[in-house]
Nucleic acid binder design. Structure first.
Lengths: 175, 175
DNA sequence: TTGTCATAGTAGACAAATCTACTAGGTGAA
DNA sequence: TTCACCTAGTAGATTTGTCTACTATGACAA
């Protein structure tokens, strides 16, 4: 499934441990995917079982061993196949919109809901901007892959801001 | 979980069958939630088991019976409790952004990916606009609950258009 | 008249996601 | 020096989600 392909995508950027991957999901990938720790480790195991990744144990003297995962050439092929496969219809799922849809005619409830979403979203956008600020400037010609990653991040920021401004107009209409 | 609350939200608008719910998920709820048919029926059973909904069998002479589900007062309470409970942190998941992030420096691949997303998204937005066009105009003072549902739909349309225009600029940059 | 679509619901298998709770050592602060 | 947090990984249970395949009937079109 998709999580395994995303993990392959990260492994293609360099070998890493389950813990490294978890940090990626919580930072650079936060605006397009999330993953549970247990799920990451389980998926790594299945990638190794399928020959799409291989492991190398880096002994941590005293500290727990690090299990580095490296993408294999079969893994590269699987990643490419995924990237080139047709997009299946996206099922949009937005828990906030779901609530708002049913919030009904209770002005107070709507106000509270919108305000708390605004707070959470503002925090999220701020986090993305933090991540953005730590990435050095690149042009498309210099490093197309890095440039593309920045584009997706900036889109995440822009669409967050777009929703924020919608929330503002909602709050004006429901004072 | 959330699906059960969304179903309660629909039942609060009027009693309906599993089939009715499936149609709602495929139309009016399409921009904020999707649900599998089997999942809907299973969730309905658990709502009844928990006393949050009750059933009434409407015999279809010849045709299969319709099992109408009606929200109970305990169900109303559960719905209210959900609407007023704190929003948990939203985990954004976007399979298209996930692919784009890893599409790397293959210009052709990026172009193809963006183009096909544009096609699918344009179709989706067109569907939402179709749904919008079938809803009569309401002002907030006339019917606040209906007005709010229209607002969420219009936000779905607007954010779709926002992404579409981003895809356009991407295509200009990656010709 | 055969086929397809819409209605209405059931059953089972399987895959994926989440939650909780562990082991185990290192670092830094109150 | 206790407590919390970070690193690194494992184990198990449970919940959700998805897919496939069924039973039935009515309506409509080729």
């Amino acid at each position: 499934m998709i999580l395994s392909r995303i993990i392959l995508g990260f492994l293609a950027l360099g070998p890493m441990t389950g813990y490294d991957l978890k940090r990626h999901f919580d930072s650079s990938a936060a605006y397009f995917w999330s993953a549970d720790k247990a799920q990451i480790y389980r998926t790594l195991s299945s990638l190794v079982a399928d020959g799409l990744a291989e492991t190398e144990v880096v002994p941590g003297d005293g500290a727990p061993d690090r299990i580095l995962h490296r993408i294999t050439s079969a893994g590269q092929d699987a990643l490419s196949a995924w990237l080139d496969s047709p997009l299946d219809r996206q099922s949009e799922r937005d828990p906030f919109l779901a609530r708002l849809f049913f919030a009904g005619d209770d002005r107070q409830r709507v106000h509270q809901l919108v305000t708390s979403r605004r707070g959470a979203l503002a925090d999220f956008v701020a986090e993305l901007e933090q991540i953005r600020s730590r990435i050095p400037e690149v042009t498309r010609t210099q490093d197309p892959a890095a440039w593309l990653r920045v584009q997706t991040l900036e889109h995440g920021i822009a669409s967050g801001q777009h929703e924020l401004s919608w929330l503002e107009t909602l709050l004006e209409d429901v004072p």
